[in-house]
């Protein structure tokens, strides 16, 4: 009993130490605060502005920031403030959905490849080598371009390119865990493959994968915004940050605010995710422990 209590205490101190370390890293803390703030702002968008993000009002086009339009209006008289807030919902939701797709594909294929080994592993690794021979953005651009410019196709294109990294990392981790004694014992005592994967392997790889995923959210947001900027992702009138910047390009000489605010929003959110990811990575980096 005493021993048990001791153990739980140990786990507790270890956990609180970890959390303490995250917060000790001030940059990660800044990232957390910024992200929470942005999430709150986007969630409360209807409370913060009464302006409709898609309502066209040609009488109000290209207005500079004012009391009614805190960030000005675009070429169709739409409120940039409302569009930036609602755009945050779009951009972040898309990034999270794409991330979930990438994780599901990447982790399953990595598990399969590492666990099965042999021909399947070889085949999957060669396919990955081939995919890595393409510069990511360009392959995504080509796939999205060929499928046709819309948000769904862009999400498919980004996911089709990005899963590769996860599959490779997961495979590597599985290969090393597979050699551990407890996995060998489980397999000799007749535990099924599914159960070994789900109960012994998956729990061991999940935390480093979460760290990697956090670091990746920023780059996914950037990539989707980039494709939308080129005109491939979100289509009008959807408020999406990359697409908003694309809309404002032609008015850069007279109405720079149309571009400035959505871009600053991307910068802020991506930076927040990078800061958090960086803090988490330090936490899991064996060198720093």
């Amino acid at each position: 009993m005493e021993h048990k209590i001791n153990l739980t205490q140990q786990v507790k101190t270890y956990k609180s130490l970890n959390i303490h370390k995250v917060f000790k890293d001030k940059m990660a803390l800044v990232g957390c605060v910024v992200l929470i703030l942005v999430l709150l702002l986007t969630a409360m968008a209807p409370l913060l502005t009464r302006n409709d993000p898609v309502k066209v009002d040609l009488m109000e086009r290209l207005n500079p920031p004012s009391r009614t339009y805190p960030m000005g209006t675009d070429h169709l008289g739409r409120c940039i403030f409302a569009r930036t807030l609602y755009g945050g919902r779009v951009s972040m939701t898309i990034a999270i959905i794409v991330l979930i797709i990438i994780l599901t594909i990447g982790v399953s294929i990595g598990l399969l490849s590492g666990y099965m080994g042999g021909f399947i592993d070889n085949f999957i690794m060669r396919v990955i080598d081939i995919l890595l021979a393409f510069p990511g953005l360009i392959l995504a651009l080509a796939i999205a371009g060929i499928l046709g410019p819309n948000l769904m196709n862009t999400m498919i294109a980004v996911a089709a390119v990005q899963w590769v990294g996860y599959a490779r990392i997961v495979r590597g981790m599985v290969l090393s865990i597979k050699e551990k004694d407890y996995v060998k014992i489980a397999s000799t005592s007749g535990t099924s493959h599914t159960s070994i994967i789900l109960r012994h392997i998956l729990p061991n790889i999940i935390s480093p994968i979460i760290v990697l995923a956090t670091l990746d959210v920023g780059s996914i947001i950037l990539r989707i915004a980039g494709l939308s900027f080129l005109g491939l992702g979100a289509q009008p009138p959807t408020p999406e940050w990359g697409a908003m910047i694309n809309d404002g390009r032609s008015y850069i000489q007279t109405a720079p605010w149309v571009i400035f605010f959505p871009g600053a929003a991307i910068l802020l959110v991506v930076m927040a995710f990078n800061l958090i990811g960086d803090g988490l990575r330090d936490l899991y980096d064996p060198k720093s422990v």
């Binding site: 000489q253 571009i259 871009g263 991307i266 930076m271 990078n274």
Partner: peptide, 17 residues
Amino acid sequence: FFGASMPSFWLGLMLIY
């Protein structure tokens, strides 16, 4: 951190402005 988080298309347009 700024460099890694800045969308290049935004940076380019801001430089133009």
